[in-house]
Structure formats: structure tokens, C-alpha cells
Design a protein around this nucleic acid. Structure first.
Lengths: 200, 200
DNA sequence: TGTACATCAGTGAACGCGCGTTCACTGATGTAC
DNA sequence: TGTACATCAGTGAACGCGCGTTCACTGATGTAC
């Protein structure tokens, strides 16, 4: 009984905390993360501004939580779904997984794309690290048989950069028009991951 | 005499206007464009907050002026210097021109890189248009002899995206450490612009 | 089992501050006659 | 040439508002004995 109650209390706190994260994402999608404040976020989440401090010291700490918790999970899911595809369909699977993520959680993806080059240096660094991890996963799934044809180690990171760029563009198009961006993104990423036969 | 005086008056107004633009760039580099206000910019530029309205209706209008005037000139310069290089040295020339721009005017480049995916939809659209124009210039300078080997039309846009990505990363490195990013950027852009021999 | 104490998420009042915007004004410069 | 009027960049005072932060408090839950 004691344990049960303790769990419920922790769960309730977690619920409120998640509400703050989601409220921040929603507002950031509309006005940009740098311009929103803890009062605005607390209001949106339905708690008093002073309660914000029970969960985060400031907005920057909330931002790092967004990356480490919500976005990290999302990107790991991307890499997983792409890696599960047959090797020759890796890139289309990756791009389609990104498209699905854009549809499922546009606010989160907007945040990721924007803050990768946003105002807070600490968030930029964290997001670059997430990009590097995604690149590592792509690289591991796309190895070629012959080492002398393998692209250089930075190819996967460039490919991940193109993927983020694609997400940024797609977010500004109506869902129906995003299909037009799919083919160019697949082509560019494949071009970067392809064995470098043209440069012996 | 009359004409002379009139010119001086216009020049003085232009000088103050440019002061506002530079002040905004400086503050945006530090805290992000979305989070700075007209009072802050006016203070930095040395005028009363109310005088701001003599030049811009609001910060968004100032932002569009930054893109159309300062950034447009910078990107046209990039394309020009890259186009002046021998065709086989186009990409290194382009990347080196971007590196030079980062050094000469880091604040402007930071603004461009950030607002391409920033909070204001109107600024995003303008910057995408600038990117497209840069891509057009790159494409024109990198045409191949045989049409059947030419990369698809979107290749140059992907290349321009990689170039912006490179700028974003380089801005977070000390100038001495930027050289390490040069080679990967050149490789990736060349890979995208190369004739697609590997996919007949 | 009951009792006394500790923990801690959430609260409302209050603070000083910077914000965007308005207004009527100044004073230098340009224009008409 | 001088005179009367128009233009317009820059100004300081004032406004109402939302901000981040502090503080002492409440009340539910957990812990010790």
C-alpha cells in the first residue's frame, strides 16, 4: 500500500512534468523556443508559474529535457525502423520514417530542426550529438561489402544533415505536398552513402 | 547645394538604419533573433526606442531587410567567387568563400543559418528563396558536358543545404578548428554535384 | 495501532523591470512664391 | 533675395502589460517510533 501510493505520487509529478514539456513544444512551434517564457508554458500546462520551479530550474533545462527524453526516443525509433528494412531499402525506409515522425509529432520535429542551429549553445551541442548518434546508426546499417568502396566516415553525418534539412522543408509544406520532397531527399542521401565508385 | 543637402540627409538616415540592422545582428547572434525586441535594438544602435518606427514597422520587417539587403549581397558574392574559379575547383572555391564569409561577418551568417528554420515563417520563406537562388548559380557553374550524366535538378539545392549545414557547424568551432570541417563539406557537395555514373 | 514529524508539489501575493506603443513636440532641412 | 509653410527623423513622458523570481504558506503523503 505504501509503495502503491508512492508510485502514484511520482506518476502524478511525471504527468505534470510531461504537460510542461508538451506545452513548451506547442508554444515553441508557434513562436520559437527562444521567445517563450516559463509563465507562458506554465499557463499552457495549467499550473501556477511558481510551480514550474518544482520541475525545472529554467527554460534551458526544460529544453535539454526535451532533447534527452522526447527527441532521443524519436530518433532512436527512426534508426531502428530504417535498420529493420532490407539493406537496399535503407534510405527510403529512413526518409519514410522521418515523414511519419513529422506527421505524428510535428511540434517535436520543428523544435529539433530549429534548435539544432538555435540560440542556446547547449541545446545546439546536445542536438549535434543526437545527430551524430543517428549518423552512427545509419552508418552501421549501410556498410558495403568491399571496404575500398566504402564512403568516408563523415558521409553518414552529412546524410543525417540532409535528413534534418528535409524535415525542415517538409514542415513548411502541407502534408499532401510533402511527397514531392521525398524523392530528392532519398536521392541525395543515397548519393552520399553510395560507394564512391566515381572517385577511385 | 539643395541637392547636396538632400543627399546628406538621406545618407544620415541610411546610416542610422544600417546601425539598427547591425545592432540586431549582433544581439541576434547572442540571444537569437526571436527573443530580441525593438527597445533592445534601438538602445544598442544609440537611438530612442520611438525612433525605431521611423525605419521599420516592427522586428519582422527589420528581419526581412537583413535578408534582402545584407544577406542577399553576401550570397551573391559567394556564388560569384565560386563561379570565377575553374570548373573543377568550383566546390573548394565555394566552401572557401563560405569560410571567408563566416570570418568576415559571423553574425550575419549565424542569422542566416538560424532563421532558415527559425520562428518567423516569412523569414524562412525568404531564406529558402535565397538558398534556391544560390543553388541556381551553383547549378549554372557546374554543368557537365554530357546531359545523360547530369545530376537531377534538385542536386544543387541539396548541395546548398549542405553548405548551410557546414556554416552552422563551423560557427560553433573556433576558427582554427574549422579547417577540419572543410574536407567533409567539399566531399559531400562534390558527391551531390557529381555526374551520377554509379546509377546508369 | 496511533502519534508526531518530515517531505514536497502546488499556490497566491508581491516585487521590480523591460517591453511595445501612443502622443505631442522639436528643430533641421526642403519647397513655393 | 527673403519669407512662409511643409516635411520628417528624432525625442521624452506616459500607458498598461507580462515577465522572472522570492516568499511564506497549504495540504496530502511518507516515515519513525
Amino acid at each position: 500500500m505504501v509503495l502503491r501510493a508512492s508510485l502514484e505520487k511520482k506518476e502524478e509529478k511525471e504527468r505534470v512534468r510531461l504537460g510542461l514539456l508538451r506545452a513548451a513544444l506547442q508554444l515553441a512551434a508557434a513562436h520559437g523556443f527562444a521567445s517563450i517564457g516559463l509563465r507562458e508554458v506554465s499557463r499552457e500546462a495549467g499550473i501556477a508559474p511558481t510551480s514550474f520551479y518544482r520541475h525545472f530550474a529554467d527554460m534551458e533545462e526544460l529544453g535539454t529535457a526535451l532533447i534527452r527524453e522526447l527527441l532521443g526516443r524519436e530518433l532512436r525509433g527512426l534508426a531502428e525502423r530504417a535498420g529493420a528494412a532490407p539493406r537496399e531499402a535503407l534510405v527510403p525506409a529512413l526518409v519514410d520514417a522521418a515523414l511519419a515522425a513529422l506527421t505524428r509529432d510535428a511540434e517535436l520535429m520543428r523544435f529539433a530542426v530549429a534548435e539544432r542551429v538555435g540560440a542556446h549553445a547547449s541545446l545546439r551541442a546536445l542536438l549535434r550529438a543526437e545527430q551524430a548518434e543517428l549518423a552512427r546508426a545509419i552508418s552501421a546499417s549501410s556498410g558495403t561489402a568491399r571496404d575500398d568502396q566504402a564512403p568516408p566516415p563523415w558521409a553518414a553525418d552529412a546524410a543525417a544533415g540532409v535528413l534534418f534539412d528535409f524535415c525542415g522543408k517538409a514542415l513548411d509544406e502541407a502534408p499532401a505536398r510533402r511527397a514531392a520532397l521525398r524523392e530528392p531527399a532519398i536521392w541525395a542521401i543515397q548519393q552520399l552513402l553510395a560507394a564512391s565508385e566515381s572517385r577511385p
